[in-house]
Simulated assay, not measured.
Amino acid sequence: MLDLTTEGWILAIIASIAVGLAKGGLAMVAMIAVPVLSLVMSPVQAAGLMLPVYVASDVGGLIAFRHHFDIGVLKTALPGAILGIGVGWAGAHLVPVWGVTLIVGLIGLIFSLNALIRPDPGKVTRKPSIRRGSFWGFLAGYTSFVSHAGAPPWQVYVQPLRMPALIFAGTTTWFFAICNWIKLIPYAALGQLSPAALTTAAVLTPVSLASVWVGLRLVKIMPEKLFYQFITWGLLLVSLRLIWQALGG
């Protein structure tokens, strides 16, 4: 088990709750997990610790959303995501984490500001596209591999599709669950899944699984318009935090 301080355990529990809420449908919440843990450990170690928690929590999310997802959207985005994970693995020792963090933050910032400024985003609806899905899926897979921060690129693609809240949440859960299972292979090959990290993750997993139910309840009772406002503002705040982190703030 990792030798964490009291502060480290508190932050690890917060990160685990965030992951569980995300798997329950509040996708953007999970983006705080690695940044929060990075306050007490390296981002690489934080990503390795949280991946098993993500994978275990995915099970709860997949059960919750087993009937609520859009297979067509997944088909357009997953091939690009798998390629992105592969590129991330190949360049794991070449690209600095701060650079990817900055790119992710800028993407999320631009998208969220656009969504908040345009007069009526509800009237702008797109259909799933192999071209857009492959591009944004690639970015989501790549940034997810580096720091579990694939939500902004993914959201840039799926939010204009204007899926119902449950379908949006379920499709997001399925997309990242598949990505996380695939990421186990390169993470293990790179030595990021140490016995100490796996043991610590096992302790944190029940907290995350319990939080899946909380997230699911929030998605079901939250009005759809408010839901999209919530994830847009969440994306904006997280993106600003990522930019600040990348620039050494």
Rank of each mutant, 00 (worst) to 15 (best):
T6V: 14
E7L: 15
G8A: 07
W9F: 10
L11D: 00
I17R: 04
A18P: 10
M28D: 02
M28E: 10
M31F: 03
M31R: 02
A33C: 05
V34S: 08
V34L: 04
P35N: 08
L37N: 10
M41A: 12
P43E: 08
P43R: 10
Q45A: 15
A47R: 01
L51H: 04
P52R: 00
S57K: 05
G60Y: 11
G61A: 08
I63N: 09
F69C: 05
I71A: 13
G80Y: 12
I82G: 06
L83W: 01
G88D: 12
G88R: 10
A90K: 09
A92V: 07
V95T: 08
V95K: 04
V100I: 15
T101F: 06
T101M: 13
I103P: 03
I103K: 01
V104C: 11
G105Y: 06
L109A: 13
I110K: 04
I110V: 15
A115I: 00
A115T: 14
L116S: 03
P119H: 06
P121K: 04
V124L: 13
V124K: 11
T125K: 15
K127I: 01
P128Q: 06
I130M: 14
G137F: 04
F138W: 06
Y142K: 03
Y142F: 15
T143C: 15
S144G: 13
S144H: 12
S144V: 00
S144K: 02
S147C: 11
A149D: 11
P152N: 11
P153R: 05
Q155H: 14
V158D: 02
L161A: 05
L161I: 05
P164W: 03
L166G: 00
I167F: 04
I167Q: 14
T171A: 06
T173D: 00
F175Y: 14
F176R: 03
W181C: 15
I182H: 08
L184N: 05
P186A: 01
L190P: 03
L190C: 03
L190K: 06
G191I: 00
Q192E: 11
S194W: 00
A197G: 07
A202E: 00
V203M: 13
L204R: 01
T205D: 01
V207Y: 06
V207W: 13
G215L: 07
L218I: 15
V219I: 11
K225L: 04
L226D: 09
Q229S: 09
T232K: 07
W233R: 02
G234M: 10
L235F: 02
L240W: 08
R241C: 10
W244D: 03
W244A: 14
Q245D: 12
G249S: 09
